[in-house]
Deep mutational scan, measured.
Amino acid sequence: MEQGTVKWFNAEKGFGFIERENGDDVFVHFSAIQGDGFKSLDEGQAVTFDVEEGQRGPQAANVQKA
């Protein structure tokens, strides 16, 4: 798993971006967030995640709040 920081996340649209430790950004969809209840992330929040190849390039999977 990688570690990163939430760059931004739009809860209304259900997606955002995580900044990886290497400085690259990776797309995150709310469906990739682990846990119960409303799935959202806060700007600046530390997270761990896997990276999978999506239809439009790399995207975060198995996102967990650190």
Rank of each mutant, 00 (worst) to 15 (best):
M1I: 13
M1F: 11
M1V: 15
M1T: 14
M1W: 09
M1C: 07
M1E: 10
M1D: 07
M1K: 15
E2W: 14
E2T: 13
Q3E: 10
Q3H: 14
Q3I: 15
Q3S: 13
Q3N: 13
G4L: 01
G4Y: 01
G4T: 01
G4N: 01
V6T: 06
V6G: 01
V6E: 01
V6L: 05
K7P: 01
K7W: 03
K7C: 04
K7R: 11
W8D: 01
W8C: 05
F9A: 02
F9V: 04
N10F: 07
N10M: 06
N10S: 13
A11Q: 13
A11M: 15
A11P: 12
A11L: 11
A11E: 08
E12S: 13
E12C: 10
E12P: 08
E12G: 12
K13R: 12
K13A: 08
K13G: 05
K13H: 10
G14P: 00
G14Y: 02
F15R: 02
F15L: 06
F15T: 03
G16W: 01
G16E: 00
G16Y: 01
G16P: 00
G16A: 01
G16Q: 00
F17E: 03
F17C: 04
F17L: 05
I18R: 00
I18L: 09
I18W: 00
I18H: 00
I18F: 02
I18N: 00
E19H: 15
E19A: 15
E19P: 01
R20H: 06
R20V: 08
R20E: 02
R20S: 07
E21M: 11
E21R: 13
E21K: 13
E21I: 13
E21C: 09
E21Q: 10
N22C: 08
N22S: 12
N22T: 14
N22Q: 12
N22Y: 13
G23Y: 08
G23M: 10
G23H: 09
D24S: 14
D24E: 13
D25L: 13
D25K: 09
D25T: 12
D25Q: 13
D25Y: 11
D25H: 12
V26L: 10
V26R: 02
V26W: 02
V26T: 04
F27W: 07
F27A: 02
F27T: 02
F27I: 03
F27V: 02
V28Q: 01
V28M: 06
V28L: 08
V28A: 03
V28T: 04
V28R: 00
H29G: 03
F30T: 05
F30P: 02
F30M: 06
F30S: 07
F30H: 09
S31Y: 05
S31F: 05
S31A: 08
S31L: 07
S31M: 08
A32S: 10
A32M: 06
A32C: 05
A32L: 03
A32T: 04
A32G: 08
I33G: 02
I33V: 07
I33H: 02
Q34W: 11
Q34D: 09
Q34V: 15
G35A: 12
D36M: 11
D36Q: 14
D36Y: 13
D36K: 14
G37E: 06
G37F: 07
G37H: 06
F38R: 09
F38P: 08
F38T: 07
F38K: 09
F38W: 15
K39F: 06
K39A: 08
K39T: 07
S40N: 08
S40D: 07
S40G: 08
L41M: 06
L41G: 03
E43I: 13
E43D: 10
G44D: 05
G44V: 02
Q45I: 10
Q45H: 06
Q45A: 10
Q45L: 07
A46H: 14
V47C: 05
V47I: 06
V47D: 00
T48G: 05
T48N: 08
T48V: 11
F49S: 00
F49R: 00
F49C: 01
F49K: 00
F49V: 01
D50N: 15
D50H: 13
D50P: 00
D50I: 15
D50S: 15
V51M: 13
V51I: 15
V51C: 06
V51L: 11
E52F: 12
E52Y: 10
E52N: 09
E52L: 13
E53D: 12
E53I: 13
E53V: 14
E53R: 10
E53T: 12
E53L: 15
E53M: 13
G54Q: 07
G54S: 12
G54F: 05
Q55L: 14
Q55M: 14
Q55P: 15
R56L: 15
R56N: 11
R56C: 08
G57Y: 05
G57T: 04
G57P: 05
G57M: 04
P58F: 10
P58V: 09
P58Q: 09
P58K: 11
P58M: 09
P58W: 10
P58H: 08
P58S: 09
Q59F: 13
Q59H: 09
A60V: 03
A60T: 03
A60N: 00
A60Q: 00
A60F: 00
A60L: 01
A61L: 15
A61M: 12
A61H: 12
A61S: 12
N62T: 05
N62D: 04
N62R: 10
V63Y: 00
V63D: 01
V63R: 00
Q64W: 12
Q64K: 15
Q64D: 07
Q64N: 10
K65E: 07
K65A: 11
K65C: 07
K65M: 12
K65L: 09
A66M: 12
A66S: 12
A66C: 08
A66P: 09
A66H: 15
A66N: 11
